[in-house]
């Protein structure tokens, strides 16, 4: 089980801030493919990966990063702090 979190418009499109996902996905991209296949709201949220960022256990990562040992995955748009 992996905790999956969504922020900003990704959260709004998916419709919830976090959920537990039972997955055998090897990489972040595999997880994205699984989520996309679930329901249209996920397909909509993950339509364009270039508009998304991912963090694994609260560290920024790439979409081809492995999920082995990861407990928390977060998806969000490019950050707008400052």
């Amino acid at each position: 089980m992996i905790d999956v979190m969504y922020f900003a418009w990704v959260r709004e499109r998916v419709g919830e801030p976090r959920e537990q996902v039972d997955t055998q996905a090897v990489t972040v991209s595999d997880l994205v493919d699984e989520l996309r296949a679930r329901e249209p709201r996920y397909a909509e949220a993950f339509k364009d990966l270039s508009a998304l960022r991912v963090a694994l256990d609260q560290e920024l990562a790439d979409f081809d990063a492995p999920l082995s040992g990861v407990r928390e995955v977060a998806f969000f748009p490019p950050m707008t702090g400052g």
């Binding site: 950050m79 707008t80 400052g82």
Partner: peptide, 19 residues
């Protein structure tokens, strides 16, 4: 600006919202 996980959403007086 680009690496701290904050996201700004604007709410206009007319009731529109945008990230």
């Amino acid at each position: 600006k680009s690496r701290a996980p904050f996201w700004k959403k604007e709410f206009t007086c007319a009731g529109k919202t945008s990230w």
